[in-house]
Computed example of a mutant assay.
Amino acid sequence: MKVWHIDSSARNEQSQSKRLTKKFVDTLAQKTTIESDVLDVSAGLPFLNDLMVGSYFTPDEHRTDEQKAVLEPSNRIVESAKESDVWVMGVPVYNFFAPASFKAFIDLLCRAKETFYYSENGPVGLLENKKVFVVIASGGTQIGSEQDFLTPWLTHCLNFVGVKDVQFINADQYTPEKEEAINQQIEAMTSELAK
């Protein structure tokens, strides 16, 4: 099983989302054989710009060296997305939404003719048969509340590229008292995956 482990918190040792995605992957690895591909988007990803967007719509055989180079970060993300069976994402809530680095990740993932295409009946996602587990960590924003702009947006984006099996691990309004419930959720999810 190929697991794509994606983190986005700007914090390191103090990050709840990073700690919990690691716990998820480590727990899964105790139950079945996995190959893990790690991406920490907080290290920095390029934001969309005119050169990048123009390169997307230029056929590969006509791309300049500059265009090919600017597409490399997106190409790596798209390749990992296609090759991985399970995605484990850690996303903290910053100012009611995902970190800017995670939005950049989604912008590089959503590529016409690579991860989706438009048909006569609308968009069709190309990343089918993936299972995605998302740890959402927050200090104040409650998942499912009127202030939760993150989970509906992320669910829509993943559905858009064909990922329909999306499950959330809610470390929202995190306190140590919630740890047991989170651990039980991770245990149940990884046991189901390992079947």
Rank of each mutant, 00 (worst) to 15 (best):
D107V: 06
Q67P: 11
K178I: 01
G162W: 01
T151C: 03
I136G: 06
F116A: 05
V53S: 06
R11Q: 09
S42F: 02
Q184W: 07
E35M: 12
L45F: 07
Q30D: 13
G139N: 11
H156D: 14
A194E: 07
L158Y: 03
E177N: 14
E79G: 09
P176E: 06
N121D: 15
V38D: 06
V135K: 01
A137L: 05
W153D: 01
L126V: 09
E120W: 10
A171C: 09
P92C: 08
V135C: 00
L45C: 06
D40N: 09
K103I: 15
S42C: 07
E180I: 11
F168Y: 15
N183E: 14
A81Y: 06
R63Y: 06
H5A: 02
S8Q: 04
P46D: 04
S138M: 09
K130S: 01
C110Y: 03
T175A: 11
L20D: 07
D40E: 10
S145G: 10
E83C: 09
V3M: 05
S84P: 06
V70A: 08
V134C: 07
F133K: 02
R63I: 11
Q184R: 13
I77K: 14
A171E: 05
D172V: 02
I34G: 03
C110G: 03
V135W: 00
S119A: 13
P59K: 09
A69W: 06
W87C: 00
V93P: 00
F97C: 07
I6K: 01
V70M: 08
D165R: 14
P123G: 03
V3R: 03
E83A: 15
V132F: 01
N75D: 13
T141Q: 13
K103F: 15
G144Y: 10
N49A: 05
I143L: 12
L193C: 10
Q173H: 08
Q14L: 13
I136P: 04
K2D: 08
C157E: 14
N95M: 10
Q16P: 02
Y118T: 09
F102Q: 00
R76T: 06
V41A: 00
K2M: 08
S80W: 06
E13L: 11
Q14N: 12
H5W: 03
I106P: 00
L39F: 01
A194M: 12
V124M: 10
G122I: 11
E180A: 14
K195V: 13
P123W: 01
L39H: 00
C110T: 13
L150V: 09
N170V: 03
G140Y: 06
Q184E: 14
L158F: 08
N159A: 11
I77C: 08
D165Q: 14
E66S: 13
V124S: 05
P92K: 02
L158A: 08
K130Q: 07
N129K: 13
S145F: 09
Q173A: 11
N159D: 15
V135G: 00
E35L: 10
D26A: 09
K195D: 08
L39P: 00
S145A: 10
E114P: 06
I6S: 00
Q173R: 12
H5E: 02
L154Y: 01
